[in-house]
């Protein structure tokens, strides 16, 4: 089994929902990203999603758009992100998923990229603008190199979409909690729990939920029903406000609070 499957088995056994944290690789530079990833792990993150910055982030809200702009302004490239992962692998075995848009990977070459990414220590890819219909080439390449290609489901997915994705799923499935772009939101839809439970029943891999989850209370709510909770924009906002040691400290304490929120909610669930 790979690092992703191992991790979900481990959190599942503990009765926990996994905390998946997203940061943009290279915001503001790759050296900072390396330090942040290790800090996130120390603070309780179970899976790291590294955003691959793209010039035209069509599925992202303002927070991640700005983060991508900072990363690109700093000269971040896909080959440099693979170097970063390779370097991180000397100090951590935390599952690492690269998340982004298809064009940079298409330009790199699907087969060559899958080979290089797997060799660098990347565990999975999540490409927001690569639905199952267009994914054959990359799916085959990631499969050949032992990497997971992670697909998304959304509130608009009907039964046949859920079946399509279920048939291709590896690693985990990412459930987008709202119709919309990425970004912190103040409320979680009250229909979410029922929907997540329903979708989970159709899948043979873990289901993580993301988009809009912004604080420990919300993370806790979602943790009650999901195998994992993704926090992105709310974490990325820290990169607008802080830098250096203060960024590490603030991001670390935010992730600790998220993790506690999730553990408490799960504890409350099993106690009730």
């Amino acid at each position: 089994m790979g690092r992703i499957a191992d991790k979900f088995e481990e959190t599942g056994k503990r009765g926990e929902s996994a905390l998946v944290t997203f940061v943009t690789a290279g915001d503001p530079d790759l050296k900072t990203t390396a330090e942040v990833v290790l800090e996130l792990e120390r603070s309780g993150a179970d899976v790291i999603e590294l955003g691959v910055p793209f010039s035209d982030p069509m599925a992202d809200g303002p927070t991640i758009q700005l983060s991508s702009e900072r990363a690109l302004a700093g000269g971040t490239t896909l080959p440099a992100i693979l170097d970063l992962v390779r370097e991180l692998r000397s100090s951590t075995q935390i599952p690492i998923v690269l998340m982004g848009y298809y064009n940079p990977i298409f330009i790199y070459g699907a087969e060559r990229f899958a080979a290089d990414a797997a060799a660098a220590g990347v565990d999975g890819l999540l490409i927001v603008d690569l639905p199952p219909e267009e994914s054959a080439e990359l799916k085959e390449a990631t499969g050949r190199h032992g990497m997971d290609l992670i697909f998304l489901l959304t509130p608009t997915s009907d039964r046949s979409r859920i079946e399509t994705v279920s048939g291709l799923a590896s690693g985990f499935v990412y459930y987008v909690s709202v119709t919309g772009v990425t970004g912190a939101r103040s409320e979680i839809a009250d229909t979410l729990a029922g929907r997540v439970t329903q979708v989970k029943g159709e899948l043979s891999v873990p289901l993580v939920v993301g988009f809009g989850i912004s604080d420990p209370a919300q993370a806790g709510e979602v943790a009650k029903v999901s195998d994992g909770v993704v926090v992105g924009s709310a974490l990325v906002k820290h990169f607008e406000r802080y830098q250096g040691a203060e960024l590490l400290a603030q991001a670390g304490s935010f992730v600790k609070a998220l993790k506690e929120g999730m553990q408490n909610a799960r504890g409350a669930k099993s106690a009730s």
Partner: peptide, 21 residues
Amino acid sequence: HSGHFGPFGGRYVSETLIPAL
């Protein structure tokens, strides 16, 4: 039938938009 002109075209969008398309 899936919107490809030779190797071009297609439907590279986020999953949320697939049902609408």
